[in-house]
């Protein structure tokens, strides 16, 4: 998918663990793992809002558009 989730980068910058973030934003660690690994098909605005609030960042810090390699 051309949209990449840089959640692990932001977590490292904020020195926060995945389970801590999951607890703050109120989702399961399994769902957070789906989000981190890029397996998620969509993201709710409410989830994005909660993540941005917890990590004190902007949506653009978490989501990034990366052009797909046409050969792949």
């Amino acid at each position: 998918m051309p949209i990449e989730v840089n959640l692990d980068v932001m977590l490292a910058k904020r020195d926060m663990k995945s389970n801590e973030l999951a607890e703050i934003i109120g989702i399961t660690t399994a769902n957070l793992s789906i989000l981190k690994t890029g397996k998620a098909k969509a993201m709710r605005f409410s989830t994005l809002e909660a993540i941005c609030e917890a990590l004190d960042c902007q949506p653009g810090d978490i989501l990034e558009f990366v052009e797909e390699d046409p050969i792949k």
Binding site: I27, N31, L32, I34, L35, K39, A40, K41, A42, M43, R44, T47
Partner: peptide, 8 residues
């Protein structure tokens, strides 16, 4: 259903 399950 799959899409719904993978919407976080």
């Amino acid at each position: 259903k799959e899409e719904n399950e993978l919407t976080i």
